[in-house]
Each structure stands twice: as structure tokens, then as C-alpha cells.
């Protein structure tokens, strides 16, 4: 159990994040879920890169075991991407709040769906 702790933590974050995205109608909460989901990926990459007893990969006397630097570099990029996504998402939520007065997805869909239900050919352009 302990041996697999890192994997379990990763999977827990992944599932929890995805669940929040699915289950919550609040757009900010959705973004939080999304961030959690992305964070799980960081763990997925970083944890196996850690070599016990290894040091930073700088060649020097007395050090023979190095950690793999590549995952760190990759995840640095991924974090940047994640921040950009989160920032853009939050910006959109602000704009949606200005336009609709709410950030609950259900309420927005209700606002855009016509109330009348009178057969085909109508309501096709509602979001």
C-alpha cells in the first residue's frame, strides 16, 4: 500500500478532479476540478522520475546516481500550460457573469432555451 502510495494519490486526484468537472454546475468549481485533474498529471510524470538517493543531474565528484531531469522539464511546461488554461477559463467566467449574471451552467442553459415547445424546426439556435 505504501509502496503504491504515489500511484494511489495520482489516481485519486485524477478521479476527484474529473468528478468535480462532471458533477458541479458552478463554472468556477468546474475550473477547480479541472486544475486538480491536471495536477494529477504532474504527479504521474514526476514521481517515477525521483530516484531514491539520486541528486540533481549535475555531474560532480562523488555523485553517481542522478534523478531523471526530463520529467521535470516537461512538467514545467505543463504547469505553464495549466496556468494559462486556468487564467483564460477564469477570464471567460468573468465575462459570462457580466453577460448572463450567473455562473451556474444550468441557469445559463435555461436562459438560452426557449420555453415554448411546439414541434420541430424551432429552438435550433439556442445554446
Amino acid at each position: 500500500m505504501i509502496a503504491h502510495f504515489s500511484q494511489i494519490a495520482t489516481i485519486f486526484l485524477m478521479v476527484a478532479g474529473l468528478y468535480v468537472v462532471m458533477a458541479r454546475g458552478n463554472m468556477v468549481k468546474k475550473l477547480i476540478g479541472l486544475s486538480l485533474f491536471q495536477s494529477s498529471v504532474y504527479l504521474l510524470y514526476l514521481l517515477p522520475g525521483k530516484v531514491i538517493g539520486g541528486t540533481a543531474p549535475i555531474i560532480g565528484a562523488g555523485f553517481t546516481v542522478y534523478a531523471n531531469p526530463l520529467p521535470h522539464v516537461l512538467i514545467l511546461t505543463a504547469i505553464v500550460v495549466g496556468i494559462a488554461t486556468l487564467a483564460l477559463g477564469l477570464t471567460l467566467v468573468v465575462r459570462i457573469k457580466e453577460a448572463y449574471g450567473t455562473i451556474e451552467e444550468d441557469e445559463i442553459i435555461a436562459k438560452e432555451t426557449p420555453k415554448t415547445r411546439n414541434g420541430p424546426g424551432r429552438g435550433g439556435d439556442a445554446a
Binding site: 468537472v21 462532471m22 458533477a23 458541479r24 454546475g25 468546474k30 451552467e105 444550468d106 442553459i109 438560452e112 432555451t113 415547445r117 414541434g119 420541430p120 424546426g121 424551432r122 429552438g123 435550433g124 439556442a126 445554446a127
Partner: peptide, 14 residues
């Protein structure tokens, strides 16, 4: 069916 088809893309993100 018609409602589903005509409003087919108005899905919730979830």
C-alpha cells in the same frame, strides 16, 4: 427525439 436533435449540442459540459 426532435428536441434532442434540434437542440442536440446544448449539452451540459459535464
Amino acid at each position: 427525439a426532435v428536441d434532442n436533435l434540434s437542440g442536440a449540442s446544448n449539452w451540459r459540459t459535464g
